[in-house]
Design a protein around this nucleic acid. Sequence first.
DNA 1: CCTAAACTTGAGGGCGTTCTCAAGTTGGTG
DNA 2: CACCAACTTGAGAACGCCCTCAAGTTTAGG
Lengths: 214, 214
Amino acid sequence: MSTTDRPLRRDAQRNRDLLVAAARRLYATRGLDVPLEDVAREAGVSIGTLYNRFPTRGSLVDAALASKVASAVEFAEQAVATEDSWAGFVWFLERTCELQASDRGYNDLCASQLDDAVEVTALKERGAGLLRQVIDNAKRAGELRADFDDGDFAFVLWGTTRTIEATGEHAPNAWRRHLAFMLDGFRAAAAHPLPAPPLEPDEVARAMRRLSGT
Amino acid sequence: MSTTDRPLRRDAQRNRDLLVAAARRLYATRGLDVPLEDVAREAGVSIGTLYNRFPTRGSLVDAALASKVASAVEFAEQAVATEDSWAGFVWFLERTCELQASDRGYNDLCASQLDDAVEVTALKERGAGLLRQVIDNAKRAGELRADFDDGDFAFVLWGTTRTIEATGEHAPNAWRRHLAFMLDGFRAAAAHPLPAPPLEPDEVARAMRRLSGT
DNA sequence: CCTAAACTTGAGGGCGTTCTCAAGTTGGTG
DNA sequence: CACCAACTTGAGAACGCCCTCAAGTTTAGG
């Protein structure tokens, strides 16, 4: 929410809007690694202008996708407020996956960590806090297995992310099946001892950063 | 097993061996998309020689990694022969994941489909047949949920592949935890109705091909 | 030892992407 | 209206990777 030090000149603001709109369109269909030249062309603006407005890759991603991340955070808020906490947990996972399935760029973003996308990063942090509550509630209700940890959410993310990436075009509902299997494994009644400790928060962050490089 | 029409000249054979060894080393640590120039340099050979021996990317992958795929097929054979068929199923998944975790190139290969890696492709097909038997056996024994389908194996692959990609360096056993969750979801006792039909074999193939392009 | 065929070499052309900058244009303010 | 700062532009430098090919070198076999 960079409260503009000085407002942009009218033409500059117009170009900024065109660029963000273009980025949203191209990210959604082609993913985050669409060439910047393509974004500029789609916006009807020169590549230099793009660099004037968005000096880093992350800053453009931020402007284009922060609102989607924000809506994911809202989902988490609603999930926390759900009385049936297992249902809230399931509902939250389904909503975020739907978001991922509907926007390839958002899907990419979920499995990565762009350090200079500051707004997105801040929102993610808020989401992480809420998610922890969702998880705790579902555990307290006895439906979510007690050995489930925050860090295990990453497994859902990595799994469905890849499934959506692979099948999004031809089998747009395949992720629902993948998620359903995982959910069945998350139920307390299904629990068998786990062979490895959960990931620490910093390990998750590092792992996400590794995926961004590829 | 391209039974050489004419044997290679001695120096050519030596270079071929050097290239395969170099590719194995670099693939294992850096993944399949390591630049070909790097492989040539690592082998101590010029880029032109690499192209003489391996005209396509897939042909080099084939030479470097077919033996690993073959050992995965052997695992499948052993799993079929296991009397406790659920244990065989679990054992097979663990062995293949260990293979993936130990070689980044093999891990990449698992989630992709290089059409010109003929030997690998043939082996994969054999493995798929065996896997079907492993699955059927475990289902017949009543331990694997009845609605589990061949195509669902792709979910395991895509999930653990990404987890290994992300955590391989810093938490080399995280995939065991991920896999354990999935296995708990695969047990017959855990089964809840699935919201989407399984992937058809050709859908899986198409999805794999999509991942290779990225 | 000689020769033809097999093989190696690396410079170089091609391509796609990132990022910069000097020159030109536009917007807002006095 | 005039002027300065803000902004736009696109050519092009830099980079990394792919792949080719003409010239030189090595091997096998007579």
